[in-house]
């Protein structure tokens, strides 16, 4: 029993964080917002870091890592508000295909030449896929309506929900940091607004919400990676906890920014809108509550102090 990431996992996440912080700052988001949302050079950078092949088996030229590593990297993608479809392709699409024994052709994903945008019946539209365009509140999200039947495969849904939760973790961290930094420099009534307890306590509540959502997300990643029988419940728990922390933090962060928060000029809106988009993607609150309801009140899941990990 050891509820920690390994040093290798932490080093990997840190290198991705540093890379995105250096190459994918708010000024990049602004440029993409006016110049077409996607940039082959950014994608190429992710490919060169090996991230498109993170979950591709080594036999197909990938790194052969697991969902725990992918969830950690997805959180970094959220933190940077990454617009490129790395998470959908590499951390949802790839593991789903590998799980179905359809690993052929994944070399092209490793090389960055193939992107995977999977439709699922729970999502009315698909991100970064072919079809009639639909406009999202998130200006960097490319949605499309697709014709034909979509799968309702539960494994795909669990991967999508888990990786959305992981991105929300990073989005919350970033929004909280932005709000705190703004509260330190914005002065009113002769002091930084962050010195007022009215703001401090709201920001502290966001801290509590996200710090107790994180271990739920990591636990879900571990359960799904191990193929635990109860993995679906833990994924739903993770999606709910991360979504609730994200909605709270987004609303708090805009409040802390005051009128500036209501402008298009402040960076915050990119992160806030991504959080709103992911909150309802891959199963909304009602859907995930219903799954927990079935397991907990329905009695299928063993509960109580002796069942922390069972």
């Amino acid at each position: 029993m050891d509820f920690r990431f390994t040093d290798d996992q932490l080093t990997l996440a840190e290198s991705v964080r540093d890379y995105l912080a250096g190459t994918h700052g708010p000024e990049v988001l602004r440029r993409l917002d006016t110049e077409g949302n996607r940039d082959p050079a950014i994608w190429q950078g992710l490919v060169e870091m090996g991230l498109t092949g993170l979950l591709v088996p080594e036999a197909q030229g990938g790194l052969g890592m697991g969902l725990v590593e992918a969830a950690l990297i997805a959180a970094e993608c959220g933190r940077a508000c990454l617009a490129e479809p790395l998470v959908d392709t590499a951390f949802v699409g790839v593991p789903w295909l590998v799980g179905r024994g359809e690993a052929e052709g994944l070399e092209a994903v490793v090389a960055g030449e193939r992107r995977i945008a999977l439709s699922h019946a729970i999502n009315p539209w698909v991100a970064d896929g072919e079809g009639a365009p639909v406009q999202s509140v998130d200006p960097l999200r490319n949605l499309a309506l697709r014709d034909g039947e979509a799968t309702d495969d539960a494994d795909l849904l669990n991967l999508g929900a888990l990786m959305s939760a992981a991105q929300l973790v990073g989005l919350v961290d970033a929004m909280l940091t932005q709000a705190v930094e703004y509260a330190k420099i914005r002065t009113q009534f002769g002091q930084p607004v962050g010195a007022f307890q009215g703001l401090k306590h709201q920001l502290a509540s966001c801290s509590v919400a996200i710090e107790f959502a994180k271990p739920v997300v990591w636990r879900a990643a571990s359960a799904l990676q191990d193929g635990a029988a109860s993995a679906a419940v833990h994924v739903s728990h993770a999606k709910l906890a991360a979504t609730d922390a994200a909605m709270l933090t987004a609303e708090t962060a805009i409040q802390v920014h005051g009128a500036m928060g209501y402008t298009y000029e402040v960076d915050l809106h990119f992160w806030m809108k991504r959080a709103w988009a992911l909150a309802g993607a891959w199963g909304d609150r009602a859907f995930h509550y219903a799954r927990i309801d079935d397991a907990v009140l329905g009695g299928a899941l063993a509960i109580g102090p002796e069942h922390t990990f069972a």
Binding site: F3, R4, E211, P215, D293
Partner: peptide, 25 residues
């Protein structure tokens, strides 16, 4: 109230996971 009951399960579990994480650390 039904949602609050489920939330109670979830929060108690979250508290347990976090405690295991801190203990491991």
């Amino acid at each position: 109230a039904r949602e609050a009951v489920l939330q109670a399960w979830g929060a108690a579990q979250a508290y347990a996971y976090n405690t295991y994480a801190v203990a491991s650390k």
